[in-house]
Nucleic acid binder design. Structure first.
Length: 429
RNA sequence: GGGGAGAUACCAGAGUGGCCAAAUGGGACCGACUGUAACUCGGUUGGGAAACCUUCGGAGGUUCGAAUCCUCCUCUCCCCA
């Protein structure tokens, strides 16, 4: 616990690059530290979690975090890691995105204005909004050599295929954010993902040239999955923090499904557990890898922090229902409310109850009537292959007919296509 | 502007008059195994219970019969100006 913040971040695998002297600075004084967030979507996603966790660690060590949402930078567009110019968002869209992201950030950081380490939330639109282009190039542009800007990877890589002047200027905009925060909030450190290194150092460079003052930077390694594929995506796309976009159940499942190796690496990065606690957990995990102790710990911790205790409980209940050893009878006896919560996010298909009375066969019911299967053959083949379960009981008879006995809660049937694809069939009057 | 090659299912890619709903590989999905894993193995991958129907860039044509031959059109790639 007495270990310095910097060393502890290093130990957790949160340090990729840093400006020398940062270590000493953090021991010497309490500073303000900022991280920026791009308003490209109406929710943050788990890729944003790393810079957020960095800010959290800083705050816990008594430093003041500043979360910057990029109203201005969002209008320009960061060229980093992009091969083509991206679409520009409308102003209304961006306002909406910013508001959503701000609300999410408040879950992680303590914004108590009375505390010396109370977090601040700023929008760079505030200082860029009223500024004219001429003023900007006169006040800021004169201080930076174009060779310096051209040398950045984000620019170099794009010179071949061309990039707009707007995107070229991006690093200056972000760089000036740092200058502004340095002047008005005494911000001395910027943190971000390692892809932001170029943009961040433009900021420290500007501070040096414009104010003759020193500033520091720290970047965290970009999280990569062990197979090298991109982190934060699943079948359904990005894993968002917004429960409307990624249900707590999906979110929980994402973490629960990471590999052993990933779980080991993610625990220090995405949770606040001490290294000792993590070491103990990993040791328990290694004794019985199939129990996936590490994944459970990770999923519990992250889901709890992002979605809260209640959502976590529901996500776990849903996981038990869908993957646990819940039999048909047990399921039938479950409380309707609990069940519906557990099944939140499962696609719902409505069909007429009259089909049931007629004793309709399952095959047309699951294809023509509900659209769960694209065609009858597909449904039939799935049944023949043993891949269909109704209410967690395998259905192997192609000619089976639906009856009222198959319903739970009077009107529902849980259809399971293979192991992981669930659909809820609702019989309407 | 001139010459050549090509367009086949989710992708890649065989097939050049009937045996073609179309080889093979990849992907995807399912099953067994398993840890809601990896690996491996097996299956499925246009519709239809079936007869059979609709598909091989588009539109016509030849033929008993066309992915396959002919005509036109659209698009792609390559070479020469």
């Amino acid at each position: 616990m007495n270990q310095g913040l910097f060393l502890s971040l290093q130990e957790r695998g949160l340090v990729q690059d840093f400006v020398p002297g940062l270590d000493a600075l953090l021991e010497r004084e309490k500073v303000a530290v900022y991280a920026g967030f791009d308003p490209t979507a109406d929710s943050l996603h788990i890729g944003n979690l790393v810079p957020i966790m960095l800010l959290v660690h800083f705050q816990r060590a008594g430093h003041r975090p500043i979360a910057l949402v990029g109203g201005a930078t969002g209008r320009v567009g960061d060229p980093t890691g992009r091969s083509a110019e991206r679409n520009v968002l409308s102003r209304e869209q961006m306002e909406h995105h910013l508001a959503c992201q701000q609300a999410q950030l408040k879950r992680f950081l303590d914004f108590d204005p009375a505390s010396p380490a109370g977090a601040r939330l700023v929008n760079n639109e505030e200082w860029f909004g009223p500024w004219s282009f001429l003023d900007f190039i006169a006040d800021v542009g004169r201080h930076i050599p174009i060779n310096y800007m051209l040398a950045k990877d984000s620019v170099k890589l794009r010179l071949e295929n061309g990039m707009s002047f707007m995107e070229f200027c991006y690093q200056l905009i972000q760089g000036y954010d740092f200058v502004h925060l340095h002047r008005h909030y005494g911000c001395k450190v910027q943190v971000g993902g390692s892809d932001q290194w170029g943009n961040i150092t433009t900021g420290t460079e500007l501070i040096r040239r414009m104010d003759g003052s020193e500033a520091w930077a720290l970047t965290a390694p970009l999280t990569k999955k062990s197979d090298g594929s991109k982190f934060g995506k699943s079948e359904g796309g990005n894993i968002w923090l917004d429960p409307q976009k990624t249900s707590p159940y999906r979110f929980y499942q994402f973490w629960l499904n990471v590999s052993d190796d990933e779980a080991r690496r993610y625990l220090p990065v995405y949770t606040l557990l001490s290294m000792q606690e993590i070491a103990e957990a990993v040791s328990i995990h290694d004794q019985a890898p199939h129990q996936r102790h590490a994944q459970r710990l990770l999923a519990d911790d992250v889901t709890r922090r992002v979605h809260g205790e209640q959502a976590l409980a529901q996500a776990r209940a849903a996981s038990d229902l869908l993957f646990g050893k819940v039999s048909r009878d047990q399921m039938m006896s479950l409380d309707h409310e609990v069940l519906m919560q557990a099944l939140e996010g499962v696609p719902v298909h409505q069909v007429s109850k009259s089909l049931l009375v007629e004793g309709c066969e399952w095959v047309p019911l699951l294809s023509d009537h509900s659209g769960i299967f694209g065609s009858r053959s597909e449904a039939r083949k799935m049944i023949e292959g043993g891949g269909l379960s109704l209410n967690r009981e395998k259905c192997s008879d192609v000619l089976a007919r639906a009856s009222t006995e198959d319903l739970f809660a009077g009107r529902l049937v849980l259809v399971q296509k293979g192991k992981k694809n669930f659909h809820l069939l609702v019989f309407e009057d």
